[in-house]
Amino acid sequence: MIPRTDREQAVAELPEVADPAGVAPQDARELSKLFFEQLAHLEEGTPEYQYARNTLIEMNMSLVRFAAGRFRSRGAEEREDIVQVGTIGLIKAIDRFELSREVEFTSFAIPYIVGEIKRFFRDTSWSVHVPRRLQEARVQLARATEELCTRLGRTPTVKELAQLMSLTEEEVIEARIAANGYNSASLDAAIGGEPDGETVLADFIGSEDTALGLIEDFHALAPMIAELDERERKIIHWRFVEEMTQARIAEMLGCSQMHVSRLLSRTLKRLREGMLTTD
């Protein structure tokens, strides 16, 4: 009997999943391990490879829906866009996942999915975004304020507005704050009442915190650092968290400083290449 090749064995062991999208999350977790095992032996571009890859995508769409659920305040139409971009993150995670790293796929995939969704918001969101419920509350607030002003002959209180609108006082306050985002003013507009007459709105706006841009980098780095072996993670932690010198790290590991330098350079190169690929 002629022995089978790894590819032939992988093809033979691929299970048939009639409805991948209908597989329960717990079952999907176990099935995914099997499909990843077989995917490693299949040639990219073959029908078998595409079947395994597409099945993995469909089975793990619950991860995308879970991540999208963190952005419930978005409208129904935007939620559909969120799921679509989240799926791109899922595909990236599938293409980069390796069972040999001994990391759960769910833990590996979520940062990719969330990172892709946040990148979508960064690139497409308005500078000021007001949820639809608050947009509608602004209109209701304007009508209620006008009605009570006419009826009472004065500006209504928050409590009176809340009673008329059948909302809580907190919701009325929230609607008032949101209404401030309806109209915009030029940053060069002069602020009334200032003695010098030259003070403009832009003078009261803080500068951008460039450190906030690191948040996405941290999300992208997390799964890559999880893939490192224990010694590599220790070196990264000692060097950049505890700020140890390479000489001190060499003492901790019982090796030469030159060896630590080579290990650190190799690890940083791998992380750098991973970040460039993620972007």
Results as ranks from 00 to 15, higher is better:
residue 1 M to D: 05
residue 3 P to G: 01
residue 4 R to W: 09
residue 6 D to R: 06
residue 6 D to N: 11
residue 14 L to F: 06
residue 15 P to F: 10
residue 20 P to Y: 06
residue 28 A to D: 04
residue 29 R to T: 04
residue 29 R to I: 04
residue 30 E to D: 08
residue 33 K to F: 13
residue 34 L to S: 09
residue 35 F to S: 00
residue 36 F to T: 07
residue 37 E to P: 00
residue 42 L to E: 01
residue 52 A to D: 01
residue 53 R to W: 08
residue 60 N to R: 09
residue 67 A to Y: 00
residue 68 A to R: 11
residue 69 G to R: 12
residue 71 F to P: 02
residue 72 R to S: 11
residue 75 G to R: 11
residue 75 G to E: 14
residue 78 E to S: 08
residue 80 E to H: 06
residue 85 V to K: 04
residue 86 G to D: 05
residue 89 G to D: 03
residue 97 F to H: 09
residue 103 V to S: 02
residue 104 E to G: 04
residue 106 T to C: 03
residue 110 I to V: 15
residue 110 I to D: 06
residue 111 P to S: 04
residue 114 V to Q: 13
residue 115 G to H: 03
residue 115 G to K: 07
residue 116 E to S: 15
residue 117 I to M: 15
residue 117 I to S: 02
residue 119 R to P: 00
residue 126 W to H: 10
residue 127 S to L: 13
residue 128 V to R: 10
residue 135 Q to H: 02
residue 135 Q to S: 10
residue 135 Q to V: 11
residue 136 E to R: 13
residue 140 Q to A: 15
residue 145 T to I: 13
residue 145 T to N: 01
residue 147 E to H: 13
residue 172 V to R: 10
residue 177 I to Q: 09
residue 179 A to V: 04
residue 180 N to I: 04
residue 185 A to M: 10
residue 185 A to V: 12
residue 189 A to R: 13
residue 189 A to N: 04
residue 191 I to A: 05
residue 192 G to V: 05
residue 193 G to F: 02
residue 202 A to W: 00
residue 202 A to H: 01
residue 205 I to N: 01
residue 207 S to V: 03
residue 208 E to W: 15
residue 208 E to S: 06
residue 210 T to H: 14
residue 211 A to Q: 12
residue 211 A to F: 09
residue 214 L to A: 13
residue 214 L to Y: 11
residue 217 D to R: 14
residue 218 F to W: 09
residue 221 L to N: 08
residue 223 P to K: 08
residue 228 L to F: 01
residue 230 E to W: 00
residue 234 K to P: 00
residue 235 I to K: 04
residue 237 H to K: 15
residue 239 R to W: 00
residue 240 F to H: 07
residue 246 Q to P: 01
residue 246 Q to S: 09
residue 258 M to Y: 01
residue 258 M to E: 13
residue 258 M to F: 01
residue 262 R to T: 08
residue 265 S to H: 09
residue 266 R to L: 07
residue 269 K to Y: 04
residue 270 R to V: 05
residue 277 T to D: 11
residue 279 D to A: 13
